[in-house]
């Protein structure tokens, strides 16, 4: 038996890819002023900042309870409103159950654009419309939740067992009955999991929105930072960490029971 000729090594292709990636990295690194030496030189400033940030100002903790409650409220409203709207958005964008091609394509693009617009924009948009404050934050997170949940949920709907759906159709059901009786019951557990996941993201997201004045813990963070009260900032960050981890654990526990 003869030894086969080695396949063309496509060295040129690999070299091009490698150089391309390297060039992209070098160009980006230089443009944004990436420098290890700067990091090292600023270590002094960094350690001063760390000293100023420590110990956390525990006396400040009681004053965080109100804002935290507001953050959770904003996240809750955003999640619930988003979760409800996400159902039709997701179903219409799921190929096998979408009523027609045009609806599918329009809804799909709508979802993509929704997902691409930064939450910062929604916060500012609603803040301009209803004024700065928690309502603007809740509305922004509603839109954000629609984007997150509908994307994941429509993928689940696309993966359902179509036989059940067909059965409802075959026994003379309308499109709405097909969705309500044949489709959604199959995917409720996933839906619930996505909603919980969106809630986790929203608690984090509401902090970002707070920074631009949409209420909650982020707003306190912004004022303390602007006043260079870094011991308080650290206190807030630690509290955020604890709350986020708690909510994550809660959400994981619930999701485990669902599936």
């Amino acid at each position: 038996m003869n030894r086969p000729a080695p396949p063309p090594r496509r060295l040129g292709l690999w070299l091009t890819i490698l150089i391309g990636l390297g060039a992209m990295t070098a160009w980006s690194g230089i443009s944004i002023g990436f420098s290890v030496s700067e990091l090292v030189c600023n270590a002094a400033g960094g350690s001063r900042l760390l000293r100023e940030s420590w110990p956390p100002d525990f006396a400040f903790l009681p004053r965080l309870i109100g804002p935290f409650l507001e953050t959770v409220q904003i996240a809750l409203i955003g999640t619930v409103v988003g979760a409800v709207i996400a159902i039709p958005v997701a179903v219409l964008a799921a190929r096998p159950v979408s009523p027609n091609w045009l609806t599918w394509i329009l809804d799909r693009n709508f979802m993509n654009i929704l997902r691409t617009l930064p939450d910062l924009f929604w916060a500012m948009l609603f803040a301009t419309a209803v004024g700065f404050g928690p309502l603007a934050g809740a509305l922004a997170l509603s839109v954000f939740s629609v984007a997150v949940i509908s994307k994941l949920f429509s993928e689940s709907v696309e993966a359902i067992d179509l036989n059940l759906t067909e059965a409802v159709r075959a026994s003379g059901g309308s499109w709405l009955q097909m969705i309500g009786l044949g489709t959604l019951p199959q995917v409720w557990p996933q839906y619930a999991a996505y909603v919980l996941y969106a809630f986790e993201l929203n608690v984090r997201g509401s902090m970002v929105l707070g920074l631009v004045g949409a209420g909650g813990i982020g707003m306190i963070l912004e004022t303390q930072r602007a006043n260079f009260e870094y011991e308080r900032v650290t206190m807030i960050v630690l509290a955020v960490l604890v709350v986020v981890l708690l909510i994550e654990q809660f959400s994981i526990a619930v999701r485990r029971r669902l599936t």
Binding site: L69, V72, L76, I77, V80, L135, A138
Partner: peptide, 11 residues
């Protein structure tokens, strides 16, 4: 919880 939150943020 939703109603309570809506009331709290004065919506």
């Amino acid at each position: 919880l939703l109603l309570w939150s809506l009331w709290a943020i004065e919506a």
